[in-house]
Design a protein around this nucleic acid. Structure first.
Length: 601
RNA sequence: GCCCGCGUAGCUCAAUGGAUAGAGCACUUGACUUCGGAUCAAGUGGUUGCGAGUUCGAAUCUUGCCGCGGGCGCCA
């Protein structure tokens, strides 16, 4: 947040370089100094300048020359206003902030800008984040939760970073899996309907697993069993055909059961704080996608092999002139003329570009579909969409169980709702032990926020392309590097402010600050940059790491520095405002992770 | 066979090509008679899978191996 100050120093450094006959075109980059207890920024520009000199033919020892340059830069900068000192450290040039004025600026910004502290300048590119694409007719499991949480956090992040943002969901409401549930329901459970949104959703998952088992070929099956299985299979296929043909009873059955799933999805997204702007349904892009295939054939991008009994394909590697197989050949229409996943994604992308004017399109989808998206993006490029270059597949690893992969088909999943319920119960029992005076309403509220927070943080604090093995105690960890630790910092800050009866309008930081105070202020000042970095790299993880570091700095500060009982009134005022600034920043950062910050816990 | 991802402390994971590779858990030892102990401080623990290359500088980039996971024309 000190770009202006640092840019002016950068200009001075370039001038010093120029005076020495060096022309240094690159941007000078500043990073925080790594020395505890000192608050400053450093640059390695002298390395770059010395290396450039060496490359230009001069015979120089780069490290020695860089150190020499650093010294002359430090001398040349002298004592710029706002900085307490400038030092050459090996080949680095380090500048140290004048603590009183910078501390005041940081704290004033955090308090003054409030919920907007850290928000980036408005940007013109429109971003669409597509996430929350579970299939209907199943139930929402913990793997879906990773997707939803990752997507929601990313959407909040890019929006806060300044991009106009559209949240899109794309439920798979048609396909063989969906038909399987409908077939089994119609045949074995017709007319039944459990009460309760979640109960209904979970029941459909059970029906799905049962049906899949019945339709699966078994070893040593008798001729009778084989005949029955084949009969079932015929019925299922017939139901799909009827759906496709718009058969009214089948469509009605589909509409009703589909709604059961969507009701459950609604409820779960509400629990997670997810507000989707646009729902695209797979069933709705089916028809438009067929037209697209014809267009691609007409343009010579796709090859129609249907006359010889084949499908419609795009030979991507061949189109690009690649020797090694990389994008391979993609099938975009079955030989019987029905659409595929890829067909629909092409249609959907076109719709996103043309109807929603999306400049950047992010797809939060698991890593198994990497090839699919590479193919889709390449076809969009061949098709002539410039936005294809800014399509991004945010792939994430699976959530597996210690005993193996989760599978809706086999019914071996850990349901999100069960985890959320367990989280709630665990927090309740911690509260009973640690804070028994909370009212029942507060307990309920806190249990929800802290329980879900712990789960969300566990999902966001590992890199997206790493697999997660779901274990109850790890996912619902309340100690150490976990949401409750961070939330507790927020609660403590709130508690101090409450006990102090509010915060002063302004304060002076002109006293000898403790190292922990400086570390805390330093971290608060880094929040805006962290938001930008995380948004541009599509990595909520950066923010998850940051907010933990911030909470840790706050807890350390808390122990070492008295606030209400501070030595002087001046220090008390300054620290009270610092506490308020920390609370605000913790709250803002947690919000971007879709984790709520309670006032008490 | 080809493509993608991963390999970092006993375990789980961080680290815009930069300064002494950091946290949590576990283990060991401490903390003002609390501005809320869901806390803090300290200690033990590393050949960043292996080898080569690029660079002033590599966990990070390139390349060859080894190991794990995923994917590869009519599933989604």
């Amino acid at each position: 947040m000190f770009d202006d100050d640092l840019n002016s120093l950068s200009e001075s450094i370039k001038k010093i370089f120029a005076d020495q006959g060096l022309h240094f075109a690159d941007e000078i980059k500043w990073t925080p100094t790594p020395f505890a207890g000192q608050w400053g920024m450093g640059t390695n520009a002298c390395f770059q300048a010395a290396a450039a000199e060496a490359r230009s033919g001069k015979k120089v020892n780069v490290p020695a020359r860089a150190a020499e340059l650093a010294q002359s830069v430090a001398n040349g900068l002298g004592a710029p206003p706002g900085f307490s000192r400038v030092a050459a450290d090996k080949a680095y040039v380090n500048v140290y902030f004048d603590t009183p004025s910078y501390a005041r600026r940081v704290v004033n910004a955090a308090i003054g800008e409030g919920a907007n502290f850290g928000r980036g300048w408005p940007k013109s590119e429109r971003v669409m984040v597509e996430y929350a694409q579970p299939n209907t007719h199943h139930s929402f499991h913990i793997g879906h939760a990773r997707n939803a949480v990752l997507g929601e956090s990313l959407a909040r992040l890019v929006e806060f970073a300044g991009f106009p943002t559209v949240r899109a969901s794309y439920p798979g409401d048609i396909g063989l899996g969906v038909i399987t549930v409908m077939w089994a329901y119609d045949k074995f459970y017709k007319g039944q309907e459990p009460q309760g949104v979640h109960e209904r959703g979970q029941w459909m998952l059970k029906v799905y697993a049962e049906a899949t088992a019945m339709l699966e070929k078994k070893e040593n099956e008798s001729p009778e069993e084989a005949a029955r299985r084949e009969g079932y299979e015929t019925e299922r296929r017939e139901m799909y055909r009827k759906w496709d043909a718009g058969h009214s009873e089948v469509r009605e059955l589909w509409r009703v059961t589909r709604q059961w799933s969507l009701d459950e999805l609604d409820e779960i997204l509400r629990m997670l704080g997810v507000k989707i702007d646009v729902f695209f349904f797979e069933s709705e892009v089916d028809e438009p996608s067929k037209a697209i295939v014809n267009e691609l054939i007409a343009r010579g991008i796709a090859a129609d092999e249907r006359p010889t009994g084949g499908p419609v394909i795009v030979k991507i590697d061949e189109e690009l002139g690649l020797k090694k197989e990389k994008y391979r050949t993609a099938v975009i229409l079955r030989s019987d003329g029905t659409t595929l996943y890829l067909t629909k994604d092409l249609a959907l992308a076109k719709q996103k570009f043309e109807q929603y004017h999306v400049d950047r399109s992010v797809y939060v989808v698991d890593v198994r579909q990497s090839l699919h998206f590479q193919q889709a993006f390449k076809i969009l490029e061949l098709w002539g969409f410039p936005q294809a270059a800014k399509c991004h597949h945010l792939a994430y690893g699976f959530v597996t169980l210690p005993e193996g992969t989760m599978s809706s088909r086999r019914g071996t999943v850990v349901l999100f709702k069960d985890v959320a319920d367990e989280a709630y119960r665990r927090v309740q029992s911690v509260i009973a032990e640690k804070n028994p005076t909370l009212s029942p309403e507060q307990r309920d509220d806190v249990s929800r926020k802290v329980g879900l927070g712990a789960l969300t943080y566990a999902l966001l604090s590992v890199d997206n392309n790493r697999d997660i093995v779901f274990e109850w105690d790890a996912a619902l960890n309340f100690d150490g590097r976990a949401a409750p630790y961070i939330q507790n910092a927020h609660v403590r800050a709130n508690s101090i402010i409450r006990k102090a009866g509010g915060i002063p309008e302004s304060a002076s930081f002109d006293y000898s600050l403790d190292a922990a105070e400086i570390a805390l202020i330093d971290l608060i000042s880094r929040f805006p940059d962290t938001v930008q970095q995380a948004a541009l790299e599509y990595k909520p993880l950066h923010l998850a790491t940051y907010v933990y570091d911030l909470a840790k700095a706050f807890h350390s500060f808390y122990h070492v520095a008295d606030v209400i009982q501070a030595e002087t009134a001046q220090i008390r005022e300054a620290r009270l405002r610092l506490v308020a600034a920390a609370k605000q920043t913790l709250g803002n950062a947690l919000r971007l992770l879709a984790i709520e910050a309670p006032e008490v816990m």
